[in-house]
Nucleic acid binder design. Structure first.
Lengths: 128, 128
DNA sequence: GAGCGTTATATCGGTCGTAATATAACCAGT
DNA sequence: ACTGGTTATATTACGACCGATATAACGCTC
């Protein structure tokens, strides 16, 4: 008999951002900010904010990072709702169809999170 | 008209372990160990190892922490496979139906991860 | 060898998040 | 007015993970 090597169980997954599946053992981790237990800012959202800042629109930012527009829009919506002041200023219609720009608060959040993340990466490296 | 307040979108989630949904802003995070990009040890798995050590069986450990036996078994299987040496020693049949015990390596992994986690908690507190 | 509780394994169904798709609203330019 | 690309929103479909369930294998005890 051909004994089709029983496929066992599959365990893999495909995380969304910044995965460097190195060989051997590795210490990995994630950090994020919550507001009242709800996700406020994480790495993906910060990347989105940066792209919006660079490209001027949610849809372009989403496309550029392989993210669906729907999700991108939901994320922006959530961040604006959870932040003390909106991070992204949106407008539909008009020249070019519309646009989205970062507010000062948006830029600040990017800077804060990236600084935090840098310290965290350092922590992971130290602890490895 | 009664205008049934459009339910909008839902965003909530229900993480598995150690969640303390505090009000206001909070820095949260998770760390885990991977082997070749696959999850090796995380908080849930360490909890499982501890329960196995205390209760002497996978099924009792699983029940005690509201985890399905299937998952508990899969986790143990994965950990044993990914570890340099098995963390859990299993045997079926016999007195009591069978049992599972931690190896020395199992105890070491628990200690290592918990120490790491403690440092991480400290990091989160400092960075908040 | 019958019983028992555990390990071991397969299968089905629900749930949840995301992808894909579709469509409307918007509005400065022309 | 019409155009064009974006924001805004709903709907559907799909795939992964988990819970529940079922059943076999195991081996000590009686």
């Amino acid at each position: 008999m051909t004994e089709t090597t029983t496929p066992k169980y599959k365990v893999k997954k495909a995380p969304r951002f910044s995965d460097h599946p190195e060989p051997g053992y590795a210490l990995r981790g994630r950090i994020w900010l919550e507001k009242d237990g709800e996700l406020y800012v994480g790495w993906g959202r910060v990347m989105l904010l940066e792209r919006i800042d660079q490209l001027g629109s949610i849809s372009r930012a989403a496309r550029s990072m392989g993210l669906g527009y729907r999700n991108a829009w939901l994320w922006v919506e959530a961040m604006n709702r959870l932040a003390p002041a909106p991070l992204v200023e949106k407008s539909s219609g008009g020249a070019g169809g519309g646009h989205a720009r970062l507010t000062l608060a948006g830029h600040e959040v990017i800077a804060e999170y990236k600084a935090l993340r840098a310290r965290f990466q350092e922590f992971l490296k130290q602890s490895a």
